[in-house]
Design a protein around this nucleic acid. Structure first.
Lengths: 224, 224
DNA sequence: GCGGATATTATTCAAGCGTATAATAAGGCC
DNA sequence: GGCCTTATTATACGCTTGAATAATATCCGC
C-alpha cells in the first residue's frame, strides 16, 4: 500500500504495550531470565533473549535493574527461596515432629524440587559464586536457612522421642542430613531414569533412619 | 632506531614461538580453559582469554579443536576424571577393604577434591548438561564410574566382615553413600569456614558408619 | 477529557565474540 | 645446511553483546 504524500514525516510504527506495575514487571523479567538460563545456559541468557521472552524490548531491563548482573542476582534469590520454601511448606503440614521431618526429607527428593530445570539453574548460579561475591552471599543465606530448618525439625523430633541429644550432635546430624538430601537430590535429578518411582524417597528415609540410629522402619514404614 | 630506506616492505614483527607437540599443546589449552572458567565463569572463558592464558594466539585453538565447544567438552572430561581418580587412587593404598573404604570416603571430603575451583568448574559443566546432550554423556560416564567404584569397595568390605548383603541392598547403600559424600563435598567446599580442620571427614566417617549400621567407632576411630 | 509524568520502545554505539583466511617462523629430514 | 611441511601468528569479517540515548505511547490525577 503506497504511503500518502508527506509520508516521510509519518511516525514510525511502534508496538502497542501495556504499562505494568513495577512488581509484576520485575517478576516477569526475573521469570524470563530463569527461562533463558535454563534453556540456553547462562551464556544464552542475553538481555535481548530475556526481553523477548518477557514480551518487552531490551532497553526496559535497565529501567528496572541497574544492570544485567543485578537482575541475575535477583533471579538467583528467586530460585533458592523457591526451593527452600517448597520443602518447608511440605513439612509444616505434618502433625507430629516425626511426620514433619519425614515430609521435609521426602519433599526434597520429589518433584517439583527434583526437576532438571531447577538443578540447571542452581548449578549455573553456584558456578558464579566464586566469580561474584554477591552471589556467595545469596548462597550463604539460603544454606543457613535450610540448615536451620533442618536443625529445628531435628531438635523437635528428638524431644518428641524423649531422646537427649546435645546441640553439637544435633548440628552434626543436620549437616549430615543436609548432605544426604542434597546428594540424593543431585543423583535423582541428574539420573532420574535410573530410579523407580518412589525408590529415592524410600532410600532417603531408610538412610535418615540409619543416620539418626533409629529402628529400621521407624521413619520409612508407610504410615498414612 | 630509524627504519632503513625501503622499510615499508619490511616484514611485520611476529612473536617468536615454540612448536609444541600435539599432546602438550592440547593439554595446555585445556588447562587454560579450566583456569578461565574458574576465574571468570563460563561467560568469561572466551577464545581470546583462553589463548592468552595458554600463551598462544586465538587462532591456534581451531587448529587443535573443531571449535570452542569441543574444547569445553574435553575440559569437562578432564575435570571429572581428575576428581574420580584422585579418590580411587587414595583408596587403593589401603590394606584392608575397610581401610580402602575409609580412605575413599575421606579423600572425597578433603583437599584437593574439596576445592572451590574444582567445585566452580563442576557446577559450570553441570549447568550445561541440560543444554548440550554431549555434556550429559560425560556426566553419566563419570557418575557410573564413581558409583561402581563405591559398590566394589562396599562389596569387598561386606565380604571382609562376613556379612551377607544382597546386591540390591549393596547398590542402595552405594547410592546413599554417594549422596552423602557429594553433599558433604558441596557443604565443605561452599562453606569451608564453617567447619574445623577434620570436622567434615569425621562427620563423613561417623555418617557412613551409621548408614551401614556399623558399631560407632568401627570406621571413625583413628587407627593409624 | 486533558496534561503531565513516566514506562516503554526504537535506535545507536563501541566493544567483544567465534570463526575464517593468508602470511610466516620453526624444526625435522635428507 | 637448505627445503618442505605445518604449527603458529596476524588480521579481517560478520554478528552479538550490554549499555546509552532520544522519541513516544500509556495512564493517573484532576
Amino acid at each position: 500500500m503506497p504511503y500518502p504524500p508527506g509520508s516521510q514525516e509519518m511516525t514510525v510504527n511502534r508496538r502497542t504495550y501495556h504499562r505494568a506495575s513495577e512488581a509484576e514487571r520485575r517478576e516477569d523479567l526475573i521469570l524470563a531470565t530463569l527461562d533463558c538460563i535454563a534453556e540456553y545456559g547462562i551464556q544464552g541468557a542475553t538481555v535481548r533473549q530475556i526481553a523477548t521472552r518477557a514480551g518487552v524490548t531490551g532497553g526496559l531491563i535497565r529501567h528496572y535493574f541497574a544492570g544485567k548482573d543485578q537482575m541475575l542476582q535477583a533471579a538467583y534469590r528467586k530460585v533458592m527461596t523457591g526451593m527452600t520454601e517448597t520443602a518447608i511448606a511440605a513439612a509444616i503440614e505434618g502433625e507430629t515432629a516425626k511426620a514433619r521431618l519425614r515430609r521435609f526429607i521426602v519433599a526434597n527428593v520429589t518433584p517439583p524440587v527434583t526437576d532438571p530445570r531447577t538443578l540447571s539453574l542452581w548449578a549455573a548460579f553456584i558456578s558464579h559464586i566464586q566469580i561474584d561475591p554477591s552471589f556467595a552471599a545469596v548462597h550463604r543465606e539460603n544454606y543457613f536457612a535450610f540448615l536451620e530448618a533442618l536443625e529445628t525439625l531435628l531438635t523437635a523430633f528428638f524431644v518428641e522421642q524423649n531422646r537427649e541429644v546435645s546441640p553439637k550432635e544435633c548440628r552434626a546430624h543436620a549437616v549430615a542430613l543436609n548432605a544426604l538430601v542434597d546428594g540424593l537430590w543431585l543423583e535423582g535429578t541428574l539420573a532420574a531414569d535410573m530410579f523407580a518411582e518412589k525408590e529415592l524417597a524410600e532410600n532417603a528415609l531408610v538412610s535418615v533412619e540409619a543416620l539418626l540410629r533409629l529402628q529400621p522402619g521407624e521413619l520409612s514404614a508407610d504410615e498414612r
